[in-house]
Amino acid sequence: MGLFSKIKQLCFVTFRIKKYEFLSDCERVAGKPNLFYPLLLKGKGKIFFGENVQIGVVSSPYFYLGYTFMEAKYESSEISIGSNVAINNAFSIICSSKVTIKDNVLIGGNCTIMDNDGHHLDLDKRKESNPISFPVYIGKNVFIGSSVSILKGVTIGENSVIGNGSVVSKNIPKNVIAAGNPAKVIRNL
């Protein structure tokens, strides 16, 4: 690597990764992912990383923009990421109860997982801080395409594939390809 490449790496990657490590305030983190992209960890809950978790992809969109965001909002909130998981750039998890990602999962760029509505749907309760939440579970060997949103209460069965741009609002069985808004099974694997 030449001098210019080293300077570019230091200024546009290494410093950004260190900045978001400094800004992170989640104190209950176990495991250490391999960072190729900035990661911001927030909240009072627990965040677990298995072995060989990769955050960020160098040759992918958003590499020089944004960051990965994971929030385990409350003391009882828990994000659990298994081993050999690869997460592309611009990914976020907002967790009020529990989000589980099992081993060998691939997640495309610009994906979001939320185990809650963000705010109450009832007009009179929208400013309350504890919206309805249901756990999200992603099974082993799942491949999630780019720009996918996974909503509260969803289970994605092992080995399944979720197509780009899908909104997953209901459970997806194992060994299928699902896509669309809302995501529906297209075919078996």
Rank of each mutant, 00 (worst) to 15 (best):
L3A: 14
S5W: 13
K6D: 01
I7A: 06
K8L: 03
V13C: 04
V13E: 05
R16D: 03
K19A: 09
K19N: 09
Y20D: 05
E21K: 12
C26M: 10
C26S: 12
C26Y: 09
E27R: 08
A30T: 14
P33W: 01
P33C: 04
N34M: 13
N34I: 14
L35T: 07
L40W: 10
L41N: 02
K42E: 15
K44F: 09
K46T: 07
K46C: 01
I47W: 02
F48N: 09
F49R: 07
G50L: 13
G50V: 13
G56I: 02
Y62V: 01
F63I: 15
Y67A: 03
M70C: 09
G82K: 06
S83L: 07
N84D: 11
A86M: 09
N89T: 13
A90Q: 08
A90E: 07
S96W: 07
K98M: 05
K98D: 02
K98E: 05
V99W: 01
I101V: 11
I101W: 09
D103L: 06
N110H: 08
C111F: 07
T112V: 08
D117I: 09
L121A: 10
L121F: 15
D122G: 04
D124M: 10
D124N: 13
K125H: 15
K125F: 15
K125Y: 15
K127D: 10
E128N: 14
E128S: 13
P131H: 11
S133E: 14
P135F: 15
V136Q: 05
K140S: 10
I150T: 09
V154F: 04
I156N: 06
E158K: 13
V161A: 02
V161G: 05
N164F: 14
S166F: 11
N171G: 11
P173A: 10
N175L: 02
I177Q: 04
A178Q: 02
A179W: 08
P182T: 00
K184N: 06
V185C: 11
N188S: 12
